[in-house]
Design a binder for these strands. Structure first.
Length: 541
RNA sequence: GCGCCUGUAGCUUAGCGGAAGAGCAUCGGACUCCGGAUCCGAAAGCAGGGGUUCAAUUCCCCUCAGGCGCUCCA
């Protein structure tokens, strides 16, 4: 049980004993303002209504009753119950952390439930850009968080390796390829214009010479999408984004799953204007959708439904899709379709993230794949570095627009938040090294006199690290990776302040021992946090 | 036109029913010392208008502003 949970339990006992008629379970919040304690509860406001008593009076009663044990002090202020955790309890946290180290953030919140997390799934028709990067990093970290919280997570990339856009890709590449031999083929209207298309064409010429001239568009499309997928995988691995599987759209056709889907849906489908429609409007969708086009080719929607049915069939408790907000119109379409298939749409959680605006100073940078002129995720990684790129992409909640300013990220590189947090880790490491050099041995927490850690700043620091597991659990519950960077920045602030006001290493050996243990625990928490974020925790900088 | 998301300090943004928080930029300070990639301080904010509530930045409605989507594209 975490400290916060212990306090919550104690508060609940007190409330139950004093006010048995109260149905509300008391909530406790971490307190940001040190003047208001470590934790606070607004329970008195809820009780006031039921008991017809002023909040301040009730808060005072509760504060009085709750004090003692792990609660050092409780104050009633304007109806709030402000709580200070006892020094003994906070100090007892340190051996716990020392023992668990890398597992301090772990919980069994997920109870081993199987989750499938699908993300990125960018079409293999061009390199990844910063928008894909956001989805990639968000998904990767969400996966880490859910795993740490006791879910069994699989991470999947759905590859759209068939259909119109691959055909367009094939045409574009073949066109550029033939141009290398001075031949002309009409460039497709919506063709891909990027420099990378010409490079793929050259690659094909270098490897196959004129032999590819006779090959059809599909051949070029397949080849190009394979090459591009490889490049995407390289970019993902350079970003430390991990997947457990790549699922190919084409495999749905090969196994006959698309055909089977169509026959299973036939009872709900109807012909109109030469096409086959599904009556999704019957459910939450705003209108019906085409399954099979007039020319007999199935739509992307059909394959996507087949894919989702496939996912439902694989025995996951929960499916999570991470989509760019430009796909939000697609949510109800999929959910409605799933109802026809007897799949419960409630088990499918679709998280939408807002798009990223890439800027260089005040200048907007274009990100259109079709037009060709754009900065790729590779470019950003090269320019800003993996750690900073990931940190910036993770700092914002998913439904906020994200502005990524390359100039800022570079210019401020010595003072930006990533380094602030990494510096915390390096500084802790450095202190531990210095202690060793000075011949101050590191002794284990159970042998040290931790009660010497009684400075206000030490109290705040321990209270903050005690909240780390809570933070991870909340992030898992709400799918909010951005809590971690923010938490780490706050922790760094509290630590640097402590460092500046108190000497860790001094003549007082006993005190030095105790403080070194605290430093070691802070270091473990930071490392834990950074590792969830997929960002390195340097010993030196 | 309809739908979804977003308007918090000069800029980038946390908080999302209870007591407005950071970073950058600006200005002013700090350590003969364990890493100055640090610390302390100042100034500055909930787009506007109505509701609901003991309590609204947070929930509901309207207005205004921005983004995205409304394909037999994916």
């Amino acid at each position: 049980m975490t400290i916060k949970e212990e306090v919550e339990t104690r508060l609940a006992e007190v409330i139950k004993a004093r006010y048995p008629e109260n149905p509300i379970f008391p909530q406790i919040e971490p307190e940001k303002n040190p003047a208001y304690g470590d934790l606070s509860s607004n329970i008195a406001f809820g009780l006031a209504k039921i008991l017809n008593n002023p909040p301040q009076v009730l808060a005072a009663e509760i504060a009085e009753a709750i004090s003692g044990g792990i609660i050092e002090k409780a104050e009633a202020v304007r109806g709030f119950v402000n709580i200070w955790v006892s020094q003994e309890r906070l100090c007892a946290l340190l051996p716990e952390i020392e023992e668990n180290k890398d597992n301090f953030c772990r919980s069994n919140f997920g109870e081993g439930k199987k989750v499938l997390l699908e993300f990125v799934s960018a079409n293999p028709t061009g390199p990844l850009h910063i928008g894909h990067g956001r989805g990639a990093v968000y998904g990767d970290v969400l996966g880490n968080i859910l795993s740490a919280s006791g879910f069994l997570v699989e991470r999947e990339y759905y590859v759209n390796d068939t259909g119109n856009q691959i055909e367009t890709l094939g045409k574009s590449v073949k066109c550029r390829y033939l141009e290398l031999y001075g031949e002309r083929l009409e460039f497709p209207e919506n063709g891909y214009n990027g420099e990378y298309i010409a490079e793929i064409a050259k690659k094909i010429r270098d490897e196959e010479g004129e032999g590819a001239k006779e090959k059809d568009i599909a051949y070029f499309g397949r080849l190009a999408s394979e090459i591009l997928l490889c490049q995407i995988q390289k970019t993902l691995s350079d970003s430390s984004v991990n997947f457990s599987s790549f699922f190919y759209e084409s495999s749905l056709y090969e196994r006959g799953e698309v055909e089977r889907l169509l026959s299973d849906l036939s009872a709900f489908a109807y012909k109109k204007d030469g096409a086959l429609w599904l009556a999704t409007n019957k459910f939450s969708d705003e209108k019906d959708r085409v399954l099979v086009r007039e020319d007999n080719r199935p739509t992307y929607y059909v394959a996507d439904l087949a894919y989702h049915r496939n996912k439902f069939g694989r025995g996951y408790e929960r499916l999570i899709n991470l989509w760019g907000t430009d796909h939000h119109g697609y949510v109800e379409r999929i959910k409605s379709g799933l109802k026809f298939l007897g799949c419960d749409p409630e088990r499918l959680n679709i998280i939408l993230y807002q798009l990223v605006t890439l800027k260089r100073g005040k200048e907007l940078v274009s990100m259109s794949t079709r037009k060709g002129e754009f900065i790729t995720l590779d470019d950003v990684l090269r320019e800003v570095g993996k750690d900073a790129t990931r940190f910036f992409l993770l700092m914002r909640k998913s439904d906020a627009h994200l502005e990524f300013d390359l100039e800022l990220a570079k210019k401020e590189s010595s003072e930006n938040p990533v380094y602030y947090v990494q510096y915390l880790h390096a500084r802790c490491s450095s202190i531990l090294r210095e202690a060793e050099q000075r011949g101050i041995p590191f002794i284990s927490a159970d042998k040290a006199n931790l009660l010497l850690l009684k400075e206000l700043e030490e109290h705040r620091l321990m209270a903050k690290i005690s909240l780390f597991p809570e933070e991870i659990k909340e992030a898992a519950k709400l799918y909010q990776p951005h809590r971690i960077p923010l938490y780490l920045m706050e922790l760094a602030g509290i630590f640097h302040n402590y460092y500046h006001h108190h000497r860790i290493l001094s003549e007082d050996r006993e005190l030095s021992h105790a403080r070194l243990i605290l430093i070691n625990c802070v270091k473990a928490v930071v490392k834990n946090g950074l590792s969830l974020l997929g960002i390195s925790a340097p010993e030196k900088m």
